[in-house]
Design a protein around this nucleic acid. Structure first.
Length: 915
RNA sequence: AGUCUCUUAGCUCAGUUGGUAGAGCAUUACCUUGACAAGGUAGGGGUCAGCAGUUCGAGUCUGCUAGAGACUACCA
């Protein structure tokens, strides 16, 4: 059999996935061993907003490598796929589409129709995502694919909500929340990001103190207290100046606060302010919250528009005046003059009016960080609003207890283990309601008196309400609420007992009723650092609360794949790299193994050249296999020939009998060496994967394959196995028995290497494996004995430390050293490769034996025609000499080079270098 | 402001209990030798950001300095 001259990824990628999937290789049921240990991963469900990006490709590669590795080891393996409904993101996409295509607003078509369109959107992009994952080679069990709004997962959501409500862990309350005026919904703290504005302003507004005048006993004006000038603007003569970045909120001020120990204001406490533009009187209060050193030491208090002010207001019983609408325009409470104005127009107008009244003290440039909506970048407005919250007191403790035991364990450990723990310690309540239509509608109903009935179904609510007319809460739950259940809701947990049957339509699947018992806790979660708090922490809490188990033992945090400019990939920067383009250009396998070669958790600047390197590696693997196949006559893959030390010993211990298999006592140093290297590599690869050091595994495999196997082993045994030409006729190798044995061992070593590469390069390795003689289901891990043959079910090499042969490695390294030094002499002396010469070697007795045993290989690879091996060197003066760790070598140069020409060349070189 | 990370060859990056610096790409010379030019052979190139300390010995441990970055909190 002869392969094409170069590897064509597309040809290999075309058919294997389909066969794997259709043969059920991805499902845990493929495992025939009832006692097999289990291994499970749930995928971080991609948002159904669009297509997958390079970050997904990275995470999927790592998850797939782990899954394939464990599957090959005989684990009952489940990698569960699915997608997330991504409330806000999808809602926004659908709104945009509606506007663009039909020039309509959501309210024009109504909730029901809107949700229907969102489902259509989900179908479309969910499909795109699953097709991309198939291209990636992801060995996920599609029969268990989930969506966060599946019926069973939605049931789980309702049950969790109701249980938490009944236990008092969920409550409805009036709080300052983050409000996005564009999306018109509340956001959790984690969905709010920051943006630094260098051109921000700090406005100093003068508030006239009521009923005070000069000589009324107040202290000499200092700090923010101003004696009024003669203009007597609003009939007052004393001012308190406050500083604010949001002047428009003054319309909702209900107090001015000062520090109780601030002597400047001491006598003003208890007085009132005539709040300009509103005609309202507000008190001057004392509160420790105020920092006397900052600004003027006097703070306007707007309880309905600022979290700190809210707390001050609570302490002092201040009224809460909400002066904005949900789109961040001012409302009627702001006054007729401002009603309907956008918050920024209102700001300008407030400032303008203060200026007109002579109450604008000054405006400073001030760098300010603004809260912005993570999704739409709109400036978030803190406002007072009634929402649903999850109390974090008990939840926090549940996660913290685990954290103290080191669960989950993060890789890399630094800094995530610590950051995760300290974040938990300072956790605030979680706002879970969202003013959206797309998502899980909150299972709470209200009667006309405002009584709340939280129930699993409308019927249950109606019963509780005793026949009163009910209206369901219009809000939906935060996307992360359902995501937080992902580790167990995807495995069949619904909170119902007995479990309802949602799986009827999936009749071809065997009994999965025990998925929850079998696969929870999952083994590892692979995800990005941006959702450690949003998702990882909540899964730990909710999984423990509802199943009593850990969601997962380990968390692998991947780095960020940055654009070529070193910045995060984004549409606005136009620095994105589409995984599909890379697949097309370099192949899926090259892209995958490149992604796996990145140090765990490290950010990476995207670099096509990195992928190209592994594309070249793929081609190297292809061509090495091509060579082995061209010289495979009479041989086949036989793992026993190299793997089982027992059979090797056995074969060697039967005197007078010919070895039953290749690779026994007749092993050459080269054979013992490559077997040793193979096992050393296998042990190290397993260890690297166990500790999630993917890049290390990749490096080990790369160098084993390219350096040890291709550069040395193939070159060393080439003559033994190659069909050669002489006198225009093809000849079989001189020693056919030896050739057959070596051909078997080279094929077997190659096959072992392909198995180890499979988790990273599934397509290439399957393509080649299928072509090797002797491969078949007989090579499968015992758990897959009767399955159709595939490398993905082959037994993953464990590596046997007993086969690590230190003396063979030492001998080979002496031989390699020697060959390299001779080659170096040739290159330095500028001797043509066509010229063969005599090499003198001086070494101790043991090493002499080693060199004699490998004389043929040394002669060939050093392109020498004679070795003279002695105790001490005895060579003419005109010899090139070199020293290795174990030997001194010399090559007499007489007749090899023309000394005159060499002298000339060297002096030219000297001249050139000293110019 | 707090916590943390990074700074290693021209470029992109590995370096896991401290023991004489590694890879890929780029580069130089030679080689179209029957697996592979997406290749082979042999090179060149680094006071591991700086300073001080611990140690027989420091890229690796400690402290400080200088750059870069991340996260959390606050910012009237």
């Amino acid at each position: 059999m002869e392969l094409a001259k170069a590897y064509d990824p597309k040809a290999a990628e075309e058919h294997h996935y389909k066969r794997w999937e259709e043969s059920g290789f991805f499902a845990p049921e493929i495992n025939e061993d009832a006692n097999a240990p289990k291994y499970s991963i749930v995928i971080p469900p991609p948002n159904v907003t669009g297509s997958l990006h390079m970050g997904h490709a990275l995470q999927h590669t790592l998850m797939d490598a782990l899954t394939r590795w464990k599957r090959m080891q005989g684990y009952r393996t489940l990698w569960l796929p699915g997608t997330d409904h991504a409330g806000i993101s999808v809602q926004r996409k659908v709104v945009e589409q509606l506007k663009k295509v039909e020039h309509k607003k959501p309210t024009d078509i109504g909730r029901e129709e809107f949700v229907r369109r969102a489902w259509t959107w989900k179908e479309q992009f969910g499909h795109t995502i699953t097709e991309q994952m198939r291209r990636e080679g992801a060995s996920v069990d599609w029969s268990r694919q989930r969506f966060t709004m599946d019926e069973s997962l939605s049931l789980a959501v309702r049950n969790v909500f109701c249980t938490l409500y009944e236990e008092g862990w969920i409550y409805r309350g009036l709080r300052i929340v983050n409000w996005c005026p564009k999306d018109k919904t509340v956001l959790s703290d984690l969905e709010v990001k920051e943006e630094t504005k260098k051109d921000g302003k700090l406005y100093y507004l003068k508030y006239p103190v009521s009923g005070s005048g000069p000589g009324s006993g107040s202290p000499p004006p200092r700090g923010g207290v101003d004696a009024a000038s003669a203009d007597g603007v609003v009939g007052s003569s004393l001012f308190v100046t406050v500083a604010t970045t949001r002047p428009e909120t003054m319309l909702g001020d209900t107090a001015v606060a000062v520090n109780p120990s601030d002597v400047r204001y001491k006598d003003l406490i208890g007085n009132t302010i005539a709040l300009p533009l509103t005609g309202r009187e507000i008190p001057i209060i004392a509160d420790e919250y105020v920092d006397a050193e900052f600004g003027t030491g006097a703070v306007k208090i707007t309880p309905a528009h600022d979290p700190n002010d809210y707390l001050v207001g609570e302490r002092h019983g201040l009224p809460q005046m909400l002066v904005m609408n949900d789109d961040a325009t001012m409302n009627a409470l702001a006054g007729a003059e401002f009603d309907g104005l956008d918050r920024f127009d209102a700001r300008a107008k407030v400032v303008e009016r203060f200026d007109e009244l002579g109450l604008l003290d000054r405006v400073d440039d001030y760098e300010i960080t603004l809260p912005i909506c993570e999704r739409c970048k709109t400036i978030v407005e803190p406002i007072l609003s009634e929402q649903w919250f999850v109390k974090m007191d008990e939840m926090r403790e549940m996660a913290l207890e685990y954290a103290r035991e080191g669960v989950p364990h993060f890789s890399p450990e630094v800094p995530h283990q610590k950051v995760y723990t300290s974040w938990l310690e300072n956790l605030k309540d979680w706002t879970i309601s969202r003013q959206l239509w797309w998502g899980h509608q909150i299972p709470a109903w209200y009667d006309s008196d405002g009584n709340i009935y939280v129930a699993r179904t409308e019927q249950e609510a109606a019963e509780k309400a005793g026949g009163r007319e009910l209206k369901q809460d219009q809000d939906v739950l935060d996307t992360w609420f359902s995501s937080g259940l992902w580790a167990f809701s995807t495995l069949g947990w619904t909170g119902e007992n007995p479990k309802p049957e949602f799986r009827d339509q999936r009749s071809k699947i065997k009994d999965q009723s025990s998925d929850l018992e079998a696969f929870l806790p999952t083994d590892v979660l692979v995800t990005g650092r941006d959702i450690i708090f949003l998702w990882v922490s909540r899964m730990m809490m909710l999984t423990r609360k509802f199943t009593g188990k850990r969601a997962f033992d380990d968390v692998v945090i991947t780095g960020t794949v940055l654009g070529k400019d070193g910045k995060p990939m984004s549409k606005s920067r136009n620095n994105g790299v589409d995984p599909i383009e890379m697949f097309d250009k370099f192949g899926v396998d090259a892209t995958r193994i490149y992604l796996a070669s990145i140090a765990t958790g490290a950010d990476i600047k995207w670099n096509d050249i990195g992928v190209e390197t592994y594309r070249n590696f793929a081609n190297k693997i292809w061509n090495a296999t091509r060579f082995c196949l061209m010289n495979s006559e009479g041989a086949a893959v036989e793992p026993d020939s190299i793997n089982s030390s027992e059979s090797r010993l056995q074969a060697a211990s039967l005197p007078g009998e010919k070895p039953a298999k290749a690779g026994t006592q007749n092993d050459s140093v080269a054979d013992r060496w490559i077997i040793s290297r193979l096992n050393r590599t296998a042990v190290a690869v397993n260890r690297a994967l166990t500790t999630y050091q993917f890049h290390e595994a990749v490096q080990l495999l790369y160098h084993f394959f390219w350096d040890d196997f291709c550069d040395w082993y193939i070159e060393l045994v080439k003559d033994e196995i190659t069909v050669f030409q002489a006198d225009g006729v093809e000849h079989e190798p001189i020693d056919p028995t030896r050739a057959a044995m070596t051909r078997t061992s080279i094929l077997t070593v190659l096959e072992q290497a392909l198995r180890m590469l499979h988790p990273f390069m599934p397509y290439l390795t399957e393509e080649l494996w299928q072509k090797l003689p002797g491969t078949g289901s007989g090579l499968h891990n015992a758990a897959y004995g009767s399955a159709e043959a595939s490398i993905m079910l082959a037994d993953f090499p464990k590596g046997d430390v007993r086969l690590i042969d230190k003396s063979a490695e030492a001998e080979m390294s002496a031989v390699i050293d020697l060959i390299k030094k001779v080659r170096n002499i040739r290159a330095e002396m500028n001797i043509s490769t066509a010229i063969r010469f005599t090499v003198h070697i001086a070494a101790d007795e043991a090493m002499q034996g080693v060199f004699r045993a490998n004389e043929a290989q040394i002669l060939k690879l050093a392109r020498a025609d004679k070795l003279i091996i002695t105790d001490t060197l005895d060579v003419p003066r005109a010899s090139a000499k070199a020293v290795t760790t174990n030997a001194s070598i010399a090559v007499p140069l007489e007749g090899l080079i023309e000394f005159d020409k060499e002298r000339e060349r060297l002096s030219n070189q000297i001249a050139k270098l000293t110019e």
